[in-house]
């Protein structure tokens, strides 16, 4: 399966944030979307999630045939965790499992999901209001993954997590990547190099892939930095 973006344009007033985006994202890979602050990473995700109307172009899924992206196809994890504070972790999961009943392939028990996400037993029945930032983030990822959407967008999700949780999340993402198209935005290069199969750069409103070929890591980094600096 592929997510194909063609000639996508997005302006704010006169400012062209996304000039002409052309790209094909494939299933089974984690894409690291690198870009400087304000490059338009969040904007691109908002467009793909149809939170923002686009000015021109199109994007769609191509499996055997081409089809429109439905709400159920996208899981979008925002950079700040947003969870309904009046529910407990368990209730939140239960609700999500129930409304996604017909889309979940091999449903697990709620506790198995918690285990999968490494959320401690004593936290599972607390109100989400009392969860730490990192735990909220985990919950947000979890409910987006449960529904098993083909496309997963993560907007700088690991940036604010401690290193142990970061490591856990990295392993988790690697373990689910074969069934999804995962796009992961960040401005931290080490993270991208470590986790992602492909590095994509958003610079001056254009999206381009940086090939590693047979460069070693240092040379590859230099190449990326060159690309980011490019005027």
């Amino acid at each position: 399966m592929k997510l194909i973006i063609k000639n996508l344009k997005k302006n704010f007033d006169k400012k062209e944030v996304l000039k002409n985006i052309n790209f094909e994202f494939e299933k089974g890979k984690i894409y690291g979307l690198l870009g400087r602050n304000g490059a338009g990473k969040t904007t691109l995700f908002n467009c793909l999630n149809e939170d923002l109307p686009i000015d021109d172009g199109e994007f769609f899924l191509k499996d055997k045939e081409v089809r429109k992206i439905e709400a159920e196809d996208i899981g979008y994890v925002l950079s700040t965790p947003n969870v309904p504070e009046f529910l407990t972790g368990r209730e939140f999961l239960k609700f999500f499992i129930e409304i996604n009943k017909d889309r979940i392939k091999d449903e697990k028990t709620i506790d198995e999901y918690f285990d999968f996400m490494k959320i401690e037993k004593e936290d599972r029945d607390k109100l989400l209001k009392d969860y730490s930032h990192g735990m909220k983030n985990k919950m947000q990822m979890l409910v987006n993954i449960i529904a098993n959407p083909s496309i997963l967008l993560f907007d700088e999700p690991l940036t604010s997590l401690d290193i142990v949780v970061q490591e856990e999340m990295k392993q988790m993402l690697k373990s689910i990547k074969k069934d999804h198209i995962i796009i992961f935005s960040t401005h931290i290069m080490e993270l991208a190099l470590d986790l992602c199969d492909e590095i994509v750069i958003l610079n001056k409103g254009i999206l381009e892939k940086i090939d590693k070929n047979d460069l070693d890591n240092t040379k590859f980094k230099d190449k990326i930095i060159e690309a980011l600096k490019e005027e």
């Binding site: 899981g75 979008y76 947003n82 969870v83 987006n144």
Partner: peptide, 18 residues
């Protein structure tokens, strides 16, 4: 404040059915 603010960030919550 206590509900939709967070729930609306989930695409599935915004499907017409829900």
């Amino acid at each position: 404040m206590n509900c939709d603010h967070s729930m609306l960030t989930y695409r599935i919550y915004r499907t017409p059915k829900i």
